[in-house]
Design a protein around this nucleic acid. Structure first.
Length: 420
DNA sequence: TCTGGGGTCCTAGGACCC
DNA sequence: TCTGGGGTCCTAGGACCC
């Protein structure tokens, strides 16, 4: 048996923990650069806000309904997530943290006990200790637990916890294909075209037919709806395979000078992350492009892939590779909107050096990176940085309405929680 | 004026091997 | 006139997730 614990309207709930007066009011959280809506409170969902809505197109409705608008505060959400997960682990050791706001829990270790009762206790503890409301779904497979969770969120009478009953047909029948975990927009469209509208319809489909028409994942999903386990809990996360750092610019970038600083910054952040996870990259991909939405400006999109020989995680090596690959692609006269650096073919194993590499140089780089990371870790990110990342404000994000980083920054601790 | 930032997996088709 | 049968690896593109 599996349970899925999923925080309700997570980012919105995090904002409310420290500003309880926002309770009951429509609230949306924006993406980087205050671009799109990425999270909504129930009230703003009811007003029709969708994830991905550009906020500038919602001005009227924001004004009309006094919608509270917040910039994203990932320092806060990340820390709140950690607290929620920590609490979940007190109730079962077999936990897979699936995303920032949800976790699968394997219940077999609690065999013989009343799962629903335990999950209700867990839910109450999370609410009391972190202030975050959570919904829990219980089922024989992860897909069914997801489905039960969806049911719990939709039906108040469940009081946040729902189990798939012995005969799941009724629950499957009232679940649309779009709401099944693993069935996205394209597939649900295709399924509806052949008359498959509910989870029960999908579960009744011929196994091989699903595999042929879709793929093996869709087939496994359908089998999971029937109660056959195909997806298991993954406690130790697999080693990552790629790492991407990219960002839209607050203002369009028109000079190589600014673009190169952005690329160098992304390369820096990607390298730091790589070292943090004890990995090296063998391949680097760099890209930049103009706005995908602007129809009047000339468009341009450039990308290049280069091999890193030998594989590395050294910041200046990666900056140099990224800039060398990007420079020849730079064209004057375009308003670039986004740039990024992706590291591919990551490994943790010993590095195969080339015949001409100097072990002394490598040792030097390694010591230098260790020092750099130590300084930046104790004195703040970016204290020591490469000149290539520059001093212009090209990388500065527009975040006009970010709440304080209450739990991770000494200068921003809450001093008075009115209303608590 | 203004539209996010990460990831994973699968499949088909082509290049290559014997 | 007629042209085999078996593999592997890589890549791009497309689907999905949060």
């Amino acid at each position: 048996m599996y349970a899925l614990a999923d925080c309700n309207n997570f980012y919105a709930s995090c904002e409310r923990v420290f500003e309880p007066h926002l309770e009951g009011k429509p609230l949306v959280v924006l993406s980087n650069n205050d671009g799109c809506v990425i999270a909504r409170s129930q009230e703003s969902k009811d007003l029709g806000f969708k994830v991905g809505d550009p906020i500038f197109k919602c001005k009227d409705i924001v004004r009309k309904h006094n919608v509270i608008v917040r910039s994203s505060n990932f320092a806060l959400y990340g820390d709140m997530s950690r607290r929620v997960m920590q609490t979940i682990r007190l109730f079962s050791p077999d936990v897979e943290v699936y995303s920032i706001d949800e976790a699968f829990i394997e219940l077999d270790g609690l065999a013989g006990r009343n799962y629903e009762k335990i999950m209700r206790q867990m839910r109450a503890a999370i609410l009391q200790w972190t202030g975050i409301p959570v919904s829990v779904g219980i089922g024989h497979t992860k897909t069914l637990a997801k489905l039960a969770n969806h049911y719990a969120k939709k039906h108040i009478e469940t009081r946040g916890v729902a189990s798939i009953p012995k005969n799941a047909d009724a629950m499957l029948r009232c679940t649309e294909v779009d709401d099944i975990w693993g069935i996205g927009r394209k597939w649900s469209e295709k399924l509806r075209n052949i008359g498959v509208n509910t989870a029960l319809d999908l579960a009744s489909m011929d196994k091989e037919n699903i595999r042929r028409s879709f793929n093996i994942i869709a087939m496994k999903t359908a089998m999971e709806l029937r109660g056959h386990t195909y997806f298991r809990i993954e406690q130790a996360p697999e080693q990552r395979k790629t790492l991407l750092r990219s960002r839209s610019f607050g203002k369009p970038v028109e000079s190589w000078h600014e673009l190169s600083e952005a690329i160098a910054s992304h390369a820096t952040r990607a390298s730091e992350k790589l070292r943090n996870e004890n990995l090296v990259a063998k391949v680097l991909h760099v890209f930049f492009h103009t706005s995908l939405f602007n129809r009047t400006d000339p468009r341009n999109s450039a990308h290049a892939t280069v091999e890193l020989i030998p594989p590395t995680n050294v910041t200046h090596t990666i900056i140099k590779a990224a800039l060398n690959a990007a420079k020849p692609m730079w064209k004057c006269g375009f308003r670039y909107k986004r740039a990024g650096v992706q590291l591919i073919d990551l490994s943790s194993g010993p590095v195969q050096c080339s015949l001409f590499d100097s072990p002394e140089e490598q040792e030097k780089d390694k010591r230098m990176m260790a020092l750099l990371d130590a300084v930046n870790s104790s004195m703040g990110a970016g204290t020591l940085h490469f000149a290539a990342t520059g001093f212009t404000k090209v990388m500065q994000m527009k975040q006009l309405q970010r709440s304080p980083r209450y739990t991770t920054n000494w200068d921003e601790l809450p001093e008075c929680l009115c209303g608590l």
